[in-house]
Every structure is written in structure tokens, then in C-alpha cells.
Design a protein around this nucleic acid. Structure first.
Length: 614
DNA sequence: TTAGGGTTAG
């Protein structure tokens, strides 16, 4: 009869946790050696597995401990090493331990071995090897194990082989909940979220993991509304909400800019003591930063017990996005001091930080360090940010030279950054060149035409504006309609340019008229140049006053009392709306925070945090 | 003592 007594973790080994430093690991190791505990295969395995799984940076040390044993490693130890490496930066090393199992006279791989090994294949995107491992699974009779099945489905989903996922799934007469969940997740990941939902609806039993997988499906294709609806349904059905559910719903709040809902989730996490994992903390940092509450974001950041590269990158990027360039670079220094290795995403945040405050030399230094210090090859995004940085600082020739020296073909992003700089620094010739390049790459890029037309309008070159408009018409280029979102009492209100269907539109119009009178008295003249492109002459000023961001701000003005007006929009804020927002912030003494496609604008006392460069 | 769902950019 099996012993009912569960074997507890060795008290010394249980001192290890994800925050344990290498120095502390070594101290614990010394104690275990002195006590002779590591001579026991069971405890040796427990120690190796705990170090390896807890913290990937200690994986080498775990490997050293693994190699120093007085006996043959157990299957548990080998499986744990496969598991740890499958999640590491060098997943292929998992196979080293798999080979040891195969070469052993006494061991053979089990269901755990394959569950971890197929994940390695998934992360490595190795199709042939994956097929071989699948073969071994069948040969050894583990194809009916729900966890192995779910791993296989995960692997084929990563390899974007939905038909193979179906193959695994259909081979199962009565699929386990675990496999069903993997399958619906795979469908969503491969772009068939409808089928995933159908599977979800047909599942006889659904646990919290299945619900989370379905919500993930919606978030991955940007169907935020449905993701949020799913979350509410989940809550209504009394399904357990864990930290993964919280991460998911927070990421929805982040994307739609819903600070109220995000705050509600944070309060829920604290009230119900939901486990504060690194991912959950990071999502909170990101949510507050992207919803414009950078102080709260940094409070959460500094309050976290453990931070990983995601956490640091989010905070650095959050500061940069909110216009705090110097602070973001200070934080990057802290990150390095703490020994956290930056990755390519971190450098996107760092370069943004340099760009928003015009620190060109520092930006160049960081860009160069990517390759020389960290061995990271800059990607297109990094080159685009460098062009943006030179452009903002007014170094247009340098920006152009930088584009021309790129080791890969410059992308639309690089040329668009240059075009934007041309608009700000009023360089017509270079702007024309940038548009030409953009159109060569993407002939229906509406943003580029609009920017160039604005440059012509600045020069009052109406002939060119009109000719550009003809070209656009002929090519069928359509302007993406502006859309702004504002949250009032937890409810999200959406305004699309030209749409008057909001129930309080009448009040908004009245307020707009009042504001126009105030602004005229304050000496404000609408900058109608920018809209020449969109509409007929006589409608100019009217249309300008109906831009979605302005309507949303005015709605905020009439419906929110004493709190900042926060607006999230899908395009870059237009020059006129930017000016009006500055004036409203002064005349009505209101703080206005606008998140546009690129960055935040904090308006206060007639000034904007972007210092009129965006 | 090991297993399915989650976080940064674009």
C-alpha cells in the first residue's frame, strides 16, 4: 500500500525561492553538503530541481550541482532539468538530459518527460524534431496522457500547424479537459477564435484555466470587448479568478485605456489577496503607465518584491511614453546595477526615453551598446526609433544618413519617422522624398499622405495639397477615421469623427460653442491648414471643432468634476486639437491627459508635457 | 517532490 504521508520538502531546501540570490544558494548548498543530505538521490533531485525552476539565472549552478552526484540521477531529476531548460534561453539543452534517460539502463522517459520535451520543440520551432518526439510519444504509449496531448497541441500551435493540432485532438476518443483547453487555445492562437469559442461552449466541464485560455484567445486578436465580456461571464458563473485572470483583464484595460476598470482590478487583487506574481505586478505597472497614471505605476513598480526584464522594460517604456526621458534612463541604470540583462524590448523603451527628451548622444551610445555590450542585433524598430530621435532633435540630414546606412532595407516606420520630423521642422523636399519611399513600400499609407499635405499646407502650397488629394483619390487611399475613447464612471464612451449618435451630443455641441467663444476672446485662431485636406473650404472650422479627441475632451469637461480628463485615441493628436486642449486646460483649470497613437500629452495651465513635439 | 492558461515592443 502506498504511504499516505506526503513527503515534505527538506526544510533547508524549502528556504529557496525565486528571489534567492546565487550567494544564498551557495550557502544553502554548503549546509546540505556538510549534513551529507545530497548523498540521498531524492534530496539531491529536490535541490537541483528547486534551483533550476526557481530562477533561470541560476540554471548553470543547478547544472553543476546536477553533475556532482554520488549516484545515478533519478528520472525526477532529469525531468526537472528538461523542464527547466525548456523554459530557459537555451531550450535545446533539454535534449542533453533526454539523451541521458535514453542511454540509461535503468530509466525510460515517462509522461512528464514528454510533456516538457514537446514544449522545448515548440519554443525552438523545430518541426522535424517535434515530429520525432511525437513519434516517440506514440511508440512509448503516452499519446493518451492529457498533459502530453496538451503539450503536443501547444507545440503544433506554435508551429502554426492547426491541422496537426486537430490530428492529435481527433485521435482522442474522450478528450480530457486539459487537452480540450489546449485545443481551444491553439485554435485561437492560429487565428480561428470562432472555432475556439465553439469548442469552449461545447465543453461539458470548464475550469478556470479553460476560461482563461478563451479570454487569451480574444486578447490575442485584439477583440477586447469580447475578452471583457468573457471575464464578466466568468465572474458571474462563480469561477475562480486567479492571478492569470487578473493579468488578462488588466491587459484588456491597458489596451482600451480603461483606468477605472484597471483600478478596480487592482483593488480586487488587494482585497482578495490574489497572488502577486511578477507577471501580475508587471501588468499593473504597464496598465497604470499606459493609462496615464505614471506615479501609481512607479509606486507599484517599487513595491514589487521581484522584477524581471518585462517589469523593468515596462517601467522604462512607461516613463518614456509619459515624457519622463531622464527618469527612464536613470531606471535603466538601476536595472543594470541590479544585474538584470536587458533584451531587445528593453532597448525600445530606452531609445524612446532618449528620443522624447532629445538626448541624441546618449541614444547613440545605447544603440551601439546593444551589439557591443549585450550582443543584441538592432531590429527595424530600433532603427526607426533612432531616425525618430535624430528627427525630433532637428538633425534631418543625420536621420537621412542613418536610414541610408541601415544594414537592411529601411521600412515604412523609418521613413515615416523622417516624414514626421520634416513636418515639424518644415522641410518640404525631404518630406517629398520620404513620402515617395513610403508609397513605394505601401502605396495606400494614409498617414504619410496626410503628413505631406500638412507640410504643403504649412507653406500655403494649395496646389500641391490639391494634387496630392487627387492622387489619393485615384489610388483609393482612405483616411483612417479618428476615434477617441473616454471613461466616465467606469463606462467607456467612444467618439468617432463625424458621428453624432452619442445621447449627450447636443450638450457637447453647446459646450463646444461656448468654448469657441471663450477661445476667440482669448485670442485663439483655429489652425485650419491641417484640415484642408479632409474637407470642403466652408466646413473647415466646423469639422475641425468636431475632431473625435476634441469631442471626447468636451464630454469629459461636462461629465467629470474635479478629476483629470483622460482620453485615449487611435491617431496622433492633431495640431489644432492640441492647441485647444492647452487653452481648455488653462481657461477651465482642468488637467487633461491624452494618450495618442504615439505617446501621452499631459495638459496643464496651458502647457503640454510634450513641449509641442510629438 | 514535476504537467494545461498569463506580463514588456511592433
Amino acid at each position: 500500500m502506498k504511504s499516505l504521508k506526503r513527503i515534505a520538502k527538506h526544510p533547508t531546501i524549502s528556504l529557496l525561492n525565486p528571489c534567492t540570490t546565487l550567494k544564498e544558494v551557495k550557502q544553502i548548498h554548503a549546509q546540505l553538503v556538510v549534513k551529507g543530505s545530497l548523498k540521498h538521490p531524492h534530496l539531491h533531485g529536490q535541490f537541483v530541481a528547486t534551483i533550476a525552476i526557481n530562477n533561470p539565472t541560476n540554471l548553470n549552478y543547478a547544472n553543476n550541482v546536477f553533475n556532482h552526484h554520488h549516484h545515478h540521477p533519478t528520472l525526477f531529476t532529469l525531468n526537472s532539468m528538461i523542464r527547466a531548460y525548456s523554459k530557459s534561453l537555451t531550450p535545446f539543452k533539454s535534449f542533453h538530459f533526454y539523451t541521458q534517460i535514453l542511454n540509461s539502463n535503468t530509466l525510460s522517459p515517462d509522461n512528464y518527460t514528454f510533456t516538457f520535451l514537446v514544449r522545448t520543440c515548440a519554443l525552438l520551432h523545430v518541426h522535424m524534431t517535434g515530429l520525432c518526439v511525437h513519434g516517440a510519444v506514440i511508440k512509448r504509449g503516452f499519446e493518451h496522457d492529457p498533459h502530453v496531448q496538451s503539450g503536443l497541441v501547444f507545440m503544433y500551435a506554435e508551429l502554426r500547424c492547426l491541422s496537426s493540432c486537430h490530428g492529435v485532438f481527433e485521435g482522442v476518443v474522450e478528450a480530457d479537459l486539459v487537452t480540450q483547453t489546449a485545443m481551444l487555445h491553439a485554435c485561437a492562437k492560429c487565428g480561428d477564435v470562432e472555432f475556439a469559442r465553439k469548442m469552449f461552449d461545447e465543453m461539458p466541464h470548464r475550469d478556470h484555466v479553460a476560461w482563461n485560455a478563451m479570454i487569451t484567445g480574444y486578447t490575442q486578436c485584439g477583440r477586447w470587448r469580447e475578452a471583457l465580456d468573457m471575464f464578466h461571464l466568468m465572474q458571474g458563473e462563480g469561477v475562480k479568478l486567479n492571478e492569470v485572470s487578473m493579468v488578462l483583464v488588466l491587459s484588456v484595460c491597458t489596451h482600451v485605456g480603461s483606468l477605472d476598470n484597471g483600478r478596480w482590478v487592482h483593488a480586487y487583487v488587494e482585497r482578495y489577496k490574489v497572488r502577486m506574481s511578477v507577471a501580475l505586478g508587471t501588468t499593473l505597472v504597464d496598465m497604470y503607465a499606459k493609462c496615464g497614471d505614471i506615479n501609481r505605476s512607479m509606486d507599484v513598480f517599487w513595491g514589487m518584491k521581484e522584477r524581471n526584464v518585462y517589469t523593468w522594460s515596462s517601467a522604462i517604456g512607461g516613463l518614456a511614453m509619459n515624457g519622463f526621458g531622464e527618469e527612464s534612463l536613470d531606471l535603466f541604470n538601476n536595472m543594470k546595477q541590479e544585474g538584470v540583462q536587458p533584451n531587445e524590448v528593453t532597448f525600445i523603451s530606452v531609445l524612446k526615453g532618449c528620443s522624447v527628451v532629445g538626448l541624441v548622444e546618449e541614444g547613440q551610445k545605447h544603440f551601439d551598446s546593444m551589439r557591443t555590450v549585450y550582443g543584441i542585433d538592432p531590429k527595424l524598430e530600433h532603427y526607426g526609433l533612432m531616425v525618430d530621435m535624430y528627427g525630433r532633435a532637428g538633425h534631418l540630414e543625420e536621420a537621412l544618413n542613418f536610414i541610408n546606412s541601415m544594414p537592411m532595407k529601411p521600412h515604412v516606420g523609418a521613413w515615416s519617422a523622417l516624414l514626421h520630423a520634416c513636418r515639424v521642422h518644415k522641410n518640404k523636399e525631404l518630406g517629398e522624398l520620404a513620402l515617395k519611399k513610403i508609397v513605394e513600400l505601401e502605396d495606400k499609407n494614409d498617414g504619410a499622405y496626410v503628413l505631406l499635405s500638412n507640410i504643403y499646407a504649412d507653406y500655403k502650397n494649395w496646389e500641391s495639397v490639391s494634387s496630392l488629394r487627387q492622387t489619393m483619390k485615384a489610388k483609393g487611399v482612405k483616411k483612417l477615421p479618428g476615434c477617441s475613447v473616454i471613461e466616465v464612471d467606469g463606462e467607456v464612451h467612444e467618439f468617432i469623427v463625424g458621428d453624432k449618435s452619442h445621447p449627450r451630443y447636443g450638450e457637447i455641441e453647446l459646450k463646444l460653442e461656448e468654448i469657441s467663444r471663450c477661445l476667440r476672446l482669448a485670442g485663439y485662431v483655429a489652425n485650419t491648414n491641417t484640415v484642408l485636406f479632409d474637407i470642403e473650404e466652408e466646413e473647415k472650422e466646423d469639422a475641425l471643432s468636431k475632431h473625435s479627441e476634441k469631442v471626447a475632451i468636451v464630454f469629459g469637461l461636462i461629465s467629470l468634476k474635479g478629476i483629470p480628463i483622460r482620453v485615449v485615441m487611435n491617431l496622433r493628436i492633431c495640431w489644432d486639437c492640441h492647441n485647444v486642449a492647452k487653452m481648455i486646460s488653462k481657461i477651465y483649470n482642468r488637467k487633461i491627459i491624452v494618450r495618442d497613437r504615439n505617446r501621452f500629452h499631459h495638459f496643464q495651465d496651458g502647457e503640454c508635457s510634450c513641449k509641442d513635439y510629438w
